[in-house]
């Protein structure tokens, strides 16, 4: 059996020597390639580009907002730190017996300072208790001493028991002194 020969012959139509059919086919091919590239490459690329650009500007705006917030908070923190520098430094200091004796010597003659105990206070602080024995000339010395604790470089609290015992011209004073400082764990 003979297989019939199929042959497709594109007719040639020429106008001024230009092959119209061939040019039309090339033009169609060009349009198809262009459309295919637009559909499968350019369009997804533009889509992801637009998305990335939108996200970029959105994130940039968020960064600006966060940076401004950070700057404002930093400024306010610095301001707060400067305003409370004395308190912050006072709470960092250890109790210095020699220095305290020198400070208190304006108001009393300190005989002894004995450490009783030390415990964590409100999680972040360390409270150390001392018993101080001293001699004062009048109760006014004691009042002035308490007032002057505001200017002392460590944080001290006078607490009970407080004993005044008259001794000739002087008064023997025994009091409990609580020293507060930052808990070393928190200070780190």
């Amino acid at each position: 059996m003979k297989i019939p020969k199929i042959s497709i012959k594109i007719p040639k139509i020429k106008i001024y020597g230009i092959d119209v059919i061939k040019n039309f086919l090339f033009f169609t091919l060009f349009i198809i390639i262009t459309l295919a590239i637009i559909a499968f490459l350019i369009s997804p690329a533009i889509h992801s580009f637009k998305k990335a650009k939108k996200e970029y500007y959105q994130t940039k705006y968020n960064l600006e907002v966060t940076t401004n917030e950070y700057k404002t908070k930093l400024k306010s923190l610095k301001k707060l730190q400067n305003a409370n520098r004395k308190i912050i430094n006072a709470l960092k200091r250890d109790f210095n017996e020699k220095n305290f004796k020198m400070f208190a010597s304006k108001y009393m003659n300190v005989h002894s300072i004995k450490e009783i105990n030390s415990s964590v206070y409100k999680k972040d602080f360390l409270k150390t208790t001392y018993i101080v024995t001293s001699t004062i000339k009048s109760p006014k010395n004691f009042y002035d001493f308490i007032d002057s604790l505001k200017t002392y470089k460590s944080v001290l609290r006078v607490y009970f028991p407080i004993d005044f015992v008259k001794n000739k011209e002087n008064i023997n004073l025994t009091l409990k002194l609580e020293h507060y400082k930052l808990n070393p764990k928190k200070a780190k």
Binding site: Y70, S76, I87, L91, K122, D124, F142, L149, V158
Partner: peptide, 26 residues
């Protein structure tokens, strides 16, 4: 920074509280 600020306020409160208690004691 917020936590630092809170901690400064806590220190300030403690300090002021102690000073007030000293004055009350006196």
């Amino acid at each position: 920074m917020d936590s630092q600020k809170q901690f400064i306020y806590k220190q300030k409160t403690l300090y002021e509280d102690i000073m007030v208690k000293n004055s009350l004691m006196k």
